[in-house]
Nucleic acid binder design. Structure first.
Lengths: 233, 233
DNA sequence: CGAACAATTGATCCTCATCAAACCTTGTGG
DNA sequence: CCACAAGGTTTGATGAGGATCAATTGTTCG
């Protein structure tokens, strides 16, 4: 597969990179395609590469000692992931990256990013901003998990996922479509697929969403926002 | 209050800073002392300053819409906090910082840190490493909250707090003392003070801890680790 | 000593997880 | 094109883990 370096500008961290830097990254990169359900890397692997997702969608997850999974983040095209390894020495990935669809990513050696960062302030700044947004999002989600009831957490999760990986569907009104199983949603909101199923069924009755197999369509975003803020009932 | 610039080396981010940089930071800084229970800043305030805690202990917390609190992090001497504002434009603090004891901190303008970072790679690297460790810790805690039972969460919380802010007490064996209320522990582990009280009472019966008013002494760290890993029973 | 606040303890209840079974949907191979 | 398998989803019944509430009992400090 060929890659146009200019495409890399769509990656937030590279948004203001000079052309020649982009070329270097592309030259250094290896394009890797994997099937749905396969893995880019596992939690605990040496973090030798960071990735830029070119096509498809993926999720970052952690597994507990008992085998339960938690979804930390969903990744969509032109997002960078697995980059924490470029910061620490001898780092291992703190999470596992699994494809939700057939996906393609550009893999670049972490050490090369580290090298590039040494004399390119824009890389430092952009990467720090990205890290800041992670920290803020994780803090928020942590608070939600600690203080909110399931229904609100699921609403918040769906809205967040819609903003991050949702695809606008034309047709009846403004709808956002998410190619996710109940299990995926459960792992992203800290509950079980059973509860997600019940909540979605209830929302469907109320006309807020349309739920299908591995699919959630948001029909009434405003209604979901109300639930997420506890303004309904 | 006078400050020796060299003391700032105890701050992780400044560990390898040249003497003259430390002097600049100290000159630019304002020393602020507050009483127990008072605040360095509130969630939502414009993040004009970042802080270095010189004396005392503090906690970073978030408040939910319903007024419930969550403890994100406890801060001890020579830790930096409130620094995310130096990365984003027009940032506001994503959390509130409250003193757990009478505390003193050095407050320095975020814009000054930002300025210094522009041509001091060590600041970028160190700050990124700090941010990386936050992200990893928050991801871990998020997973714990989503998958672990309360008792294990409380054990993990106590052990983490011990490592972060615990003070070694001599006397009967190796013990670690934490000046925290049940409420504090509850807010750090995502439960209620009632449950924390019951769990600590149980542990005390089993000789693992000694619990007093605003105080938890760990008598048997190994036992707590076993509980945190589910190896007991 | 008394006020203020932290901690305990018991009783109760509710939200959700768990388990089991059946039901759909999609893709595949004959 | 149908039948079947595989895996996602739904639904009900049940119960447990903690939250909540109320009342009491420490503890500390002015």
């Amino acid at each position: 597969m060929k890659m146009d370096p200019a495409d890399l500008r769509r990656v937030n961290v590279f948004k203001d990179a000079p052309e020649e830097d982009l070329k270097l990254f592309v030259e250094k990169g290896i394009v890797r395609s994997i099937e749905e359900g396969e893995f880019f890397f596992f939690q605990g692997d040496p973090a030798a590469y960071f990735y830029v997702l070119i096509e498809g969608r993926a999720k970052l997850l952690q597994t507990s000692a008992t085998g339960q999974q938690v979804n930390l983040r969903t990744i969509t095209e032109w997002q960078m992931f697995g980059a924490l390894g470029a910061v620490r020495e001898n780092a291992t990935y703190p999470a596992t990256a699994q494809a939700l669809e057939p996906s393609t990513a550009l893999a670049i050696e972490s050490s090369f990013l580290k090298e590039m960062m040494q004399n390119r302030p824009y890389l430092n700044i952009n990467l720090m901003q990205l890290m800041t947004s992670y920290i803020m999002e994780m803090q928020e989600r942590y608070r939600e998990l600690a203080t909110e009831r399931v229904e609100r957490r699921i609403a918040l999760t769906i809205l967040r996922l819609a903003a991050q990986i949702g695809k606008r569907t034309e047709g009846d009104g403004m709808t956002v479509e998410l190619p996710l199983t109940r299990q995926d949603v459960a792992e992203a909101s800290g509950t079980t697929m059973f509860t997600v199923s019940r909540v979605l069924a209830d929302w469907e009755r109320r006309g807020l969403v349309a739920a299908g197999r591995e699919r959630v369509v948001i029909r009434n975003p405003h209604g979901l926002v109300q639930i997420s803020e506890g303004l309904d009932q």
